[in-house]
Simulated scan of single mutants.
Amino acid sequence: MDERLPARDRIIDAAIAAVRMRGYADTTVDEICAAAKVSKGSFFHHFRNKEDLARAAIDHWNRFTGAIFEQAPYQQDPDPLNRLLGYIDFRMAILDRPVEEFTCLLGTLVQEIYQTHPAIRTDCDDGMASHIALLMRDIEAAKAIYAPHADWDGGSIGYFIQSVLQGSFIFAKAQGDAAVVRSNLILLRRFIESLMSNPEHEEKRRRD
């Protein structure tokens, strides 16, 4: 924990790490305060309760991860299909980390609290939908070039991509490693390539 960070940021970082490793219910305010090196008085100065902290953590997570994907090297490729495949490759490149570090805070939270904390559930849904909306830009642009007459739309493919990821993360947690995620992402990449099956443009893309 970087003690140079403001107390509020340290609390959020500690909460994100704890929830990703142990879940929402098993993460206590006392544990968060200890990890963040703050007093409970400091905690309650910044947050009303654990749910208020969780919602702040979701907002921080969305902004932090959004910036990572927006600034990733694949974003510089002029071809939208290459950017889409680059997104999948980028996801694969971070799988050498511990399971709790490559899985998703939003997916972890919503699986646990979807019936008990509707405000957190809505925040998670909004965050995942915003991420899908970013993917849809490249999906729709690639479709216009490579599969203009296909009967699928960008939204359905965006949700499918995220469903593969979130489902794979569950198996990674169950099995304790990233092998199933890597295997599924390889298949996902092949599936996306098969959707964009315009031979003329595919040959040009590979030459470029």
Rank of each mutant, 00 (worst) to 15 (best):
M136I: 12
K143F: 00
S42T: 15
K143R: 08
T116N: 14
Y146R: 03
I88G: 01
D30Y: 08
I170P: 06
V99R: 03
R189P: 01
I192G: 03
L85Y: 00
Y74T: 11
D151V: 04
P118H: 08
I58H: 04
G154V: 06
R190F: 05
Q76T: 14
I120W: 09
E3I: 12
T27W: 00
I94N: 12
I32L: 05
A150L: 07
G127P: 05
Y74Q: 14
A35I: 08
I132A: 04
L195C: 08
E70Q: 12
D2W: 04
Q75K: 12
E101W: 05
E70T: 14
F47C: 06
M128T: 10
V19K: 00
F191C: 01
G66F: 07
V180Y: 02
R22H: 15
A141Q: 02
R83N: 13
G167L: 10
A25I: 03
S197V: 02
S197K: 08
D153M: 02
R190N: 14
I12N: 07
D52T: 08
T108Q: 13
M196Q: 01
K143M: 01
S194H: 09
M92D: 04
Y159A: 14
G86R: 02
R4K: 10
A72K: 09
I58E: 00
G176S: 10
Q115S: 14
Q76K: 12
A150W: 07
E101P: 01
L135V: 04
S42G: 11
T27P: 01
A147S: 15
E200K: 10
K50P: 04
C124Q: 00
D89C: 06
D9C: 08
R97C: 08
M92A: 13
R121M: 07
T116F: 03
R121V: 07
Q175G: 14
G86I: 07
Q162F: 02
A172L: 02
I11V: 11
K37G: 14
I170A: 15
D153K: 03
E203Y: 08
R83C: 13
P73V: 10
A150Y: 07
P73R: 10
V29E: 03
A15W: 05
A15D: 07
G41Y: 04
Y114M: 13
V99K: 02
K204M: 13
F44I: 11
R182L: 04
A56Y: 05
P98C: 03
E3G: 08
D26H: 12
K204S: 13
C104Q: 02
A179D: 12
D123P: 03
T122D: 03
P118Y: 03
E112V: 06
G86H: 04
R48I: 10
M136Q: 15
T65D: 12
I192W: 01
K173G: 09
P118D: 02
S168M: 04
G155K: 11
V99C: 05
V99D: 03
E70F: 06
A54L: 15
P148I: 05
A34R: 14
P98A: 02
I88T: 00
R4D: 06
Y74I: 12
L53K: 06
A141E: 03
M136K: 12
I32N: 01
V19T: 11
G155Y: 10
G86F: 00
E203P: 00
P73I: 09
Y114W: 09
E193L: 12
D96I: 06
T116K: 13
R137W: 02
